[in-house]
Amino acid sequence: MHEHVQLEPLAKDVPQTKRGHERCLALLLSATELFLERGYDNVSLDDIVNHAGGSKASIYKYFGNKAGLFKAICDYRREKFFADINVHTEDTNCDLRQHLIDTLLNFYCHILEPENAAFMRLILEQSQRDPDIALHIHERGPVHIQQSIAYFLETAHLQGLLHCENPLFSAQLYFGILRNLEWRILMGIPPHETDQEIINYISYCVDRFLDAHQKR
Rank of each mutant, 00 (worst) to 15 (best):
I123D: 00
I149H: 00
N106I: 13
H157K: 05
E22N: 14
L25T: 12
A72D: 03
Y62H: 11
R184F: 14
I73M: 04
I185M: 10
G188D: 10
L181K: 08
S203K: 06
A26T: 06
S30G: 06
L210S: 02
A171L: 01
T103Q: 03
A134K: 09
I73P: 03
E154N: 06
L45I: 15
V49C: 04
E197P: 12
Q126N: 06
L104Y: 04
A171S: 06
G20D: 06
C164D: 02
I111R: 09
F169N: 08
Q172D: 10
F107I: 07
S127I: 03
R97N: 06
Q159M: 08
A72I: 04
H163A: 06
N166H: 13
E22D: 15
H21D: 07
H213Q: 04
L181R: 08
L186T: 09
F35C: 05
F81L: 09
F209Q: 01
H163K: 09
Q146H: 13
L36A: 05
N116M: 08
F81W: 11
D84S: 15
D211Y: 04
G54Y: 00
P191L: 09
R179M: 11
L210Y: 03
Y204F: 15
L29M: 07
G176D: 01
L96C: 02
G53Q: 01
I101Q: 08
H4R: 14
D195I: 15
N86Y: 15
E113S: 12
E79P: 07
L161S: 04
S127K: 05
F169G: 00
S203R: 05
N50F: 10
M120T: 11
P15C: 07
P131N: 05
F209A: 00
K215T: 08
T32R: 08
Y62G: 07
E182G: 13
E182A: 13
L112A: 15
R77D: 13
I177N: 04
C94Q: 15
P131E: 06
C94A: 14
L45D: 10
E37L: 10
S58F: 10
A150E: 01
L112N: 14
G160Y: 03
T17D: 04
Q196S: 10
A156H: 01
K12S: 12
C94G: 13
H88I: 12
Q214N: 02
Q214W: 01
I149E: 01
Y201Q: 08
H51D: 08
R77I: 10
H144M: 11
G64T: 05
D84V: 13
R216N: 10
E165W: 02
I145V: 09
L100G: 00
Q172N: 12
V143F: 14
A52H: 00
L178S: 06
L112I: 15
V14A: 04
F63C: 02
S55D: 10
F35M: 00
Q146V: 04
G176H: 02
S55G: 10
L29H: 05
A156G: 00
V43W: 01
D195F: 14
L105S: 09
I111T: 13
L29G: 00
H99F: 14
T32K: 06
L153Y: 02
D13H: 14
L25K: 07
A83R: 12
Q6R: 11
D46T: 15
I149C: 04
F63Q: 03
R184K: 15
S58W: 09
L7F: 01
R77W: 11
I202H: 00
L181T: 06
D47R: 02
